[in-house]
């Protein structure tokens, strides 16, 4: 049973410039809440978003802050609430707590958490202004009409959404930030039929940096033999190698060779 945090990466309204994109304060508080709850309950924390590839920047931030896993469900930045909730819910089936921000950076309706709860038939406590961990359950405060407050104790599984004031997102360590910059992000695509498919690992190329190659000293009896051994192309083995493997294993084998030849960085994670 993991803790899943759902965030929404939002482009700024005016120019749609990715440099100014990000997640809301409430979503940041959700990430912090998810991380603290996971730590207290000795559980794992997964951060999920529905968005385009650029949204991975926010997932990397979450990874740097200590999320155990991050997942991007491929979708456009303006996927509607019902569809977003459907995609997220499918990914949250096994979660003990699903934590959301109570509003996104583009100030939507805040309905996604409720829709997730409905789909999964879970209890919900939305618009929380305080979250404490008491033993195995959560003690939370919810804002009601007329300035009143409601105190709840939540055992889970349940969906909660938090206001931005609930927690301040921790500052990621430098090492974790550097590692997150190169980490592999799980991407799930919707193939049109509604089914979700996890994409294979992709590895970014880098400028070709050939590895130093050890050339053994030639071992012929005469000088001519030794010279021939180094220079003669007819006797050299070349790179070719034929193996028969399953597609997955073949892909790994190719990556391994590319690494060995210096086309890819050493295993990033």
């Amino acid at each position: 049973m993991t803790i899943t945090v759902c965030i929404k990466w939002v482009l700024p309204n005016r120019d749609g410039d990715e440099r100014f994109a990000g997640i809301s304060l409430a979503d940041q508080a959700a990430v912090e809440t998810g991380l603290s709850v996971a730590e207290a309950l000795n559980d794992t924390c997964t951060v999920v978003t529905v968005g385009p590839p650029a949204a991975e920047a926010s997932l990397r931030d979450a990874l740097a802050c200590g999320a155990h896993d991050v997942v991007r469900i491929d979708g456009s930045a303006d996927t509607d609430s019902a569809e977003t909730a459907r995609l997220l819910a499918e990914h949250c089936v096994h979660s003990r707590f699903i934590v959301c921000g109570d509003y996104s950076a583009d100030r939507g309706s805040g309905s996604v958490p409720a829709l997730i709860a409905a789909r999964l038939e879970r209890g919900q406590a939305l618009g929380l202004i305080d979250v404490r961990i008491v033993g195995e359950s959560l003690s939370v405060v919810r804002r009601l009409d007329g300035g009143r407050r409601e105190k709840l104790s939540i055992v889970g599984p349940a969906v909660i959404s938090v206001e931005g004031s609930v927690a301040r997102l921790r500052r990621a360590s430098l090492r974790a930030t550097l590692a997150a910059g190169e980490a592999h992000i799980n991407v799930i695509t919707n193939d049109g039929s509604g089914a979700l498919r996890r994409n294979p690992e992709t590895v970014p190329p880098r400028p070709y940096r050939p590895r130093a190659r050890v050339v053994p000293s030639p071992s012929g009896s005469s000088a001519l033999d030794r010279v021939r051994q180094i220079t003669d192309t007819s006797s050299s083995k070349g790179h070719g190698e034929t193996v028969v493997l399953s597609p997955e294993d073949a892909a790994s084998r190719i990556l391994e060779s590319l690494r060995a030849w210096g086309y890819l960085a050493d295993s990033a994670t």
Binding site: R171, A172, S173, L174, R175, A176, T177
Partner: peptide
């Protein structure tokens, strides 16, 4: 040193 936790490089 930097202002991040564990921030020495």
């Amino acid at each position: 040193s930097t202002d991040r936790p564990d921030g020495d490089l």
